[in-house]
Design a protein around this nucleic acid. Structure first.
Length: 451
RNA sequence: GAGGUUGUAGCUCAGUUGGUUAGAGCGUCAGUUUGUGGCACUGAAGGCCGGGGGUUCGAGACCCCUCAUCCUCCCCA
């Protein structure tokens, strides 16, 4: 049998793990800097917890876990009956009652709903864990990938949104990735639907206009018509889509269009609050075509795109008024953002943004040149390790040639050579493998050497 | 779920209108006489040509099916 990997999953070799950790560490550090505390939840949730939270399409992409013990003869008839329901497209706890988590937000909402009595609000948590989606893999899309989330619940203050946009800006600046941080408000989209006279068409409108930069305005208009909007409505939406300029100019034009619509003006106020709050907001870009698929968003929404790479969004998030309400605990509003590490990695790899220093593994290789020699080397090596310097000793006595090549291939910068001559003198030769320079020092001075 | 692409050595790929024992580069391993690597040279190992069926005297090449892969759409990180 030929071993293979499940579709859309990957192994990560040392080099890749180090680069990924570099990203994780930057994100985690900034999360902590802003006062977010870590949380981890199980890989699997009850299917019931996840179903119906991500829209119809989302439900299809949830990985479901087959129940154990279905082959139990005593339960055959029940199992067959339940399976009939599966064939009809329904889920049943008789066949599957657990599923792999699809994102980190819903498990978090479940956690908050379960523990709201113990948590002090506002509650700020960050979470860095893998999620799974039964999507068709392609460029920048995997079936197992990491999300890094930061969410604040129990507060409606827009200051939270300001903080989150700052986290985005800070992290990507630290990573050296040039990005556009787009913001919009679902309230503005709602207003647009209301003005069109089709509040019920809100979803159709947002789905269509979200594709603007991909398919162009003409195709969007076609799609709107297909979705049952009349010419007048389409014309209005076209005006909306044609809004251009910098943030200030866009807002002026939008206000003209929205007029006195209450919801719309609220959305505009929110955006203006965030834009005016700080001086670093030049990184934020209003984008009224931004819609986002997840249907629990109700206020400000975010999306981050890399400037110099062809890649889908590398981060996204938004405000949700009542996520825990789905779990029987109403009135806990929240807002959160997410980083897509796997895509950030792909972008950074493409643009060669990883610093070389990321790949420092073993610092020193001790040569193995005999029984007594290796014992001496071993003792010295342990001393260096005690000082926090990562070292290795060659696994067996071998020719110089071999040991050098090993060091070379692993990118180990220093070799410590202790042979018969050094044993007699109580010295050690330290060789810098990059420059070729070497020097002989007393073994007792090795600890003090700066590698 | 719909459409397309590509499957030949560990990796990247050649392989003529179908014609003997299947090719290169890189990598791996071993040597180039036993305390100084990267270079060079020599040699070796390594392939059910993704799998199954068919056409043919003959298939890595052609046809059908299947699996895998990558990409596009949908949707998303």
């Amino acid at each position: 049998m030929k071993p293979t990997l499940p579709q859309g999953t990957r192994d990560f070799s040392a080099e890749v793990v180090r680069k990924r950790n570099y990203i994780f560490n930057k994100i985690r550090t900034v999360f902590e800097l802003y006062g977010f505390q870590p949380l981890e939840t199980p890989a699997m949730e009850n299917l019931e917890t996840l179903m119906g939270k991500y829209g119809e399409e989302g439900d299809k992409l949830i990985f479901k876990i087959l129940n154990n013990g279905l082959d139990n003869p005593a339960k055959h008839s029940k199992a067959k009956e339940d399976f009939e329901k599966i064939l009809e497209g329904k889920n049943t706890t008789g066949i599957t009652e657990r599923a792999l988590r699809y994102d980190l937000t819903i498990p978090f909402a479940r956690y908050v709903a379960m523990n709201h009595g113990q948590l002090s609000f506002p509650f700020k948590r960050h979470q860095i864990q893998p999620v799974w989606r039964a999507d068709r893999p392609q460029r920048g899309r995997y079936r197992e990938f990491y999300q890094c989330d930061a969410d604040v619940v129990g507060s409606t203050s827009l200051l939270n949104e300001v903080e989150l946009t700052n986290i985005y800006a800070t992290v990507f600046e630290k990573l050296g990735v040039a990005v556009e941080i787009k913001i919009n408000s679902r309230k503005i989209l709602t207003a647009l639907a209301e003005i069109c006279g089709g509040a019920d068409k809100m979803m159709d409108i947002t789905i269509a206009i979200d594709k603007l930069d991909k398919i162009g305005i003409e195709k969007v208009k076609e799609e709107l018509q297909q979705r049952g909007l009349n010419d007048e409505q389409v014309a209005l939406i076209e005006q909306y889509l044609l809004i251009e300029g910098n943030n200030v100019e866009k807002l002026i034009k939008l206000k003209e269009l929205i007029g006195s619509n209450k919801t719309g003006n609220k959305g505009i106020d929110e955006i203006e609050f965030i834009l005016n709050y700080q001086t670093t907001n030049h990184k934020l870009q209003t984008d009224f075509t931004l819609a986002r698929g997840l249907n629990y968003y109700t206020g400000i929404i975010f999306e981050v795109k890399a400037k110099d790479a062809q890649m889908g969004s590398i981060g996204g998030g938004g405000r949700y008024d009542d996520l825990t309400g789905l779990f029987g605990v109403p009135n806990i509003p929240g807002v959160g953002i997410s980083f897509g590490v796997d895509r950030i990695y792909d972008v950074m790899e493409e643009l060669k943004l990883f610093p070389e220093a990321v790949q420092t593994g073993t610092q020193v290789l001790f040569f193995n040149l005999g029984e007594a020699e290796s014992k001496t080397a071993f003792g010295l090596m342990q001393q260096l390790r005690g000082k926090g310097i990562s070292c290795e000793i060659f696994h067996e006595q071998a020719k110089f040639d071999k040991q050098f090549k090993y060091a070379d291939k692993k990118g180990i910068p220093f070799a410590v050579i202790i042979g018969t001559k050094e044993m007699e003198e109580g010295t050690a030769v330290i060789k810098n493998l990059k420059t070729g320079e070497q020097q002989s020092i007393l073994q007792s001075d090795l600890q003090a050497f700066s590698f």
